[in-house]
Design a protein around this nucleic acid. Structure first.
Length: 427
RNA sequence: GGAGGGAUGGCUGAGUGGUCGAAAGCGCACGACUCGAAAUCGUGUUAACCCUCACGGGUUACGAGGGUUCGAAUCCCUCUCCCUCCGCCA
């Protein structure tokens, strides 16, 4: 959510941003109009309250002095003021609510380095990494390989849960665990604090960190408590300091989170989403930073560097893409994606998303830090380190051998008793 | 699940119907002392919002919501969270 002062003092910046995104200005103008009316109504109500407070001070005196008539006169006046105040108060409240629910929908201001573009075709190449292997055979897609090796059981998962759920079995499940441990070790080694969050959140906290549309399409709602299962540990870790004033000495706060991630994936998806590429549940190791505003752009690059060095160490081929204006979501100001090469599919596909959300989440969450000038919103940043299901797909496709097995990345081998090859599961 | 206690500013914590936005301490900021620092002393320091070019002024907020009252941090109700004890359980 953008600061209300942005609408009051720099509406032109928001308008220019909407132009970049190809959005109309209606919402901006409506926020400004509602805010204007709210201020006037609010002021009128405050003035009436002031009169009531002044009048009420006379009551005790009149009572003490035994002046019953005067007391009655004041009581009548105060009662009538009270009615007016209540009416104005309701009006002001409605306007403020309307203003803010609209304000919640206005997206973050894009960073100047975000490339222009109408959709994902406008994303620009930032850098290429690793070696694109040549195969002496026709590389297979991961869903064929996991099937041949009995590493994934989709039909039985569908039977007991539903489509897009899976059982991970045998060596592939072991490598999933190895990936988790490796990624956590990698980032704790760089000063990030390992945190395991709750995997369910309440609505209020969740509204602070996500696009409101996600409540209908992304998160599961758990009854009877009404909790939402998290779509990523970014959400609990970012909301962790909701409603708090943080000490500047804590910043930047760097965390590495791990959690299962739950996604409803409402809507149809294409043929390429076979196997375990797009699933309702997966494990993700996530980087989170809460920082002072002046540090966030450097830290955004640090997050990307961490990703690049982590994925390089897995010896995978991928590209880093700078997400363009038309493909950016509501919350991020700038976003890099890592797209891994899938030789079976013959395409680069998204495996990591690295965002600077500036003060957008912090404003909603009322997360501030102390400065000598007062309290200011912090900045929040997040980046995937490894989403295990998708990292597995990339490893399976890139490291496949002619006989349909998969070589284990060197850095993961110590976590798997120095095994070199993933063996098939025999059932 | 049962019984009891609690939630106050950045933190600890006093305050049980009006002069309380709220004692005190810590922390923080500024100043003095010092070559510099520590210690010490002095001054200041809740936040959000509104009006004002400014000086300044106003409103609201003591977990959240509702109620009683002319008036609520203080009394009543509901909810949330925390603590203690009992029960159950990974």
């Amino acid at each position: 959510m953008l600061d209300i002062n942005m609408f009051r003092e720099h509406a032109d910046i928001i308008r220019a941003d909407h132009d970049k995104r190809g959005l109309p200005h209606d919402q901006i103008e409506e926020v400004i109009r509602l805010d204007d009316n709210w201020k006037k109504t609010r002021y009128d109500a405050d003035q009436l309250r002031r009169r009531r407070n002044e009048a009420a001070r006379g009551i005790a005196e009149a009572k003490k002095a035994g002046n019953n008539d005067e007391m009655q006169r004041i009581l009548t006046e105060v009662a009538s003021l009270g009615e007016q105040i209540d009416a104005l108060g309701v009006e002001a409240n409605d306007m403020e609510n309307a203003r803010d629910s609209l304000r919640m929908k206005v997206p973050n201001i894009l960073h100047e380095s975000v490339p222009m573009g109408g959709n994902e075709d406008g994303n620009t190449l930032h850098s290429k990494h690793g070696i694109k292997k040549e195969y002496s055979f026709e590389p297979k897609t991961h869903n064929i390989l996991v099937d041949q090796n009995n590493w994934v059981d989709l039909p039985r998962a569908a039977k007991i849960a539903g489509s897009r759920f899976y059982f991970l079995k045998g060596d592939l499940a072991r490598m999933e665990l190895a990936l988790q441990q490796y990624a956590v070790d990698f980032l704790t080694g760089r000063g990030y604090t390992f945190v395991q969050p709750p995997v369910m959140m309440n609505r209020t906290a969740y509204e602070g960190v996500t696009d409101l549309g996600d409540f209908e399409t992304v998160m599961y709602n758990v009854q009877p408590e009404g909790f939402y299962t998290i779509a990523t540990s970014e959400h609990p870790l970012t909301a962790m300091f909701m409603d708090e004033v943080m000490e500047p000495s804590m910043l930047p706060l760097k965390m590495v989170g791990i959690s299962p991630c739950f996604r409803r994936e409402v809507g149809a998806h294409g043929q390429s989403d076979k196997g375990i590429w797009r699933v309702h549940q997966f494990t993700k190791i996530e980087q989170i930073i809460i920082s002072k505003p002046e540090d966030s752009w450097n830290l955004h690059e640090e997050l990307l560097t961490n990703c690049v060095e982590l994925w390089d160490s897995l010896n995978l081929h991928y590209e880093v893409v700078n997400i363009c204006t038309g493909d950016m979501g509501t919350v991020a100001s700038k976003k890099y994606d890592l797209e891994a090469w899938l030789p079976g599919v013959g395409a680069y596909k998204e495996v990591v998303s690295c965002s600077n959300c500036t003060d957008y989440q912090a404003n909603r969450l009322k997360m501030r830090y102390r400065t000598s000038e007062g309290n200011e919103s912090v900045h929040t940043l997040n980046s995937t380190a490894v989403a295990t299901s998708r990292a597995l797909v990339a490893i399976i496709e890139q490291n496949q051998t002619e006989d349909g097995k998969v070589e284990i990345p060197k850095v993961l081998q110590p976590y798997m008793q120095n095994q070199k090859i993933l063996e098939s599961c025999n059932w």
